[in-house]
Simulated scan of single mutants.
Amino acid sequence: MFYEPKNGHGLPHNPFNAIISPRPIAWVSTRGSDGRDNLAPYSFFNAVAYVPPQVMFASTSAKEDRGDTKDSVANIRDTGVFAINVVEYAARDVMNRTSGSWDRDTDEFALAGIDKADCTTIDCPRVANAPATLECKLTQIVQLPGVANFAVFGEVTGVHMRDDCLVDGAFDVTRFQPLARMGYRDYSVVKEVFTLKRPDD
């Protein structure tokens, strides 16, 4: 099968997300200029540079009470900071709870019963028991083609790692089993890891 997205795919569900998978999930926490905290997951997310360490996530929809975007991007525009919390399999249900289109006054930490802690290098909350959290300072927001499509880039200024995830000096993902987004409403979990040496190793 071949299709051009501009002409539609003719299938019951859009296959695009399923083709580009698995995708890591950025559980983005922010604090608005009004002091209200927000937490929401985004699966268009990845690391984009080593030195300095940089990450990006994309928001692709809007809410009526935020105009052209969602709470996360609106807060980042106002404050210039955000945190990305790693989602483990054990947190799948509470993460999913925070994915709702809640009004801007809702604190998703409280809504889902998630413990929060303060970040160290930025004024922002983080998921207290996350396997890892990346504290980020905004470098740029890029408006992409289409309605409400924004890519947010940030430099990582602080890194939290849960002690039980460190094994012999390495961050071991098998200790917490990262959750990944597949297509549609499907998810996956990382349980096995293998190593491949590069030709120039």
Rank of each mutant, 00 (worst) to 15 (best):
Y3A: 04
P5L: 00
L11T: 05
P15A: 04
N17T: 14
A18C: 08
I20E: 00
P22F: 05
V28W: 04
R31W: 07
G32D: 07
G35F: 01
D37A: 15
N38H: 13
N38P: 04
P41R: 01
S43Y: 04
A49M: 09
P52M: 09
Q54F: 00
E64I: 07
R66E: 07
T69Q: 01
T69I: 06
N75M: 07
R77L: 02
N85V: 05
V86C: 10
E88T: 06
A90E: 15
R92W: 14
R92I: 12
V94C: 11
M95K: 11
N96A: 11
G100K: 06
D105P: 00
D107A: 08
D107M: 11
L111Q: 08
L111M: 11
G113R: 07
I114S: 01
D115E: 15
A117F: 02
T121S: 15
T121R: 15
I122F: 11
A128L: 05
N129D: 14
P131L: 08
L134Y: 13
T139S: 14
T139Q: 12
Q140M: 12
V142M: 13
V142E: 07
V142I: 14
L144Q: 11
L144T: 02
L144P: 01
G146D: 01
N149F: 14
N149L: 01
G154Q: 03
E155M: 10
G158I: 07
M161F: 14
M161A: 10
C165N: 12
L166R: 13
D168Q: 11
D172M: 08
V173K: 01
P178F: 05
D186L: 13
S188I: 00
V189A: 08
V190D: 00
E192L: 05
L196C: 02
K197G: 13
K197H: 11
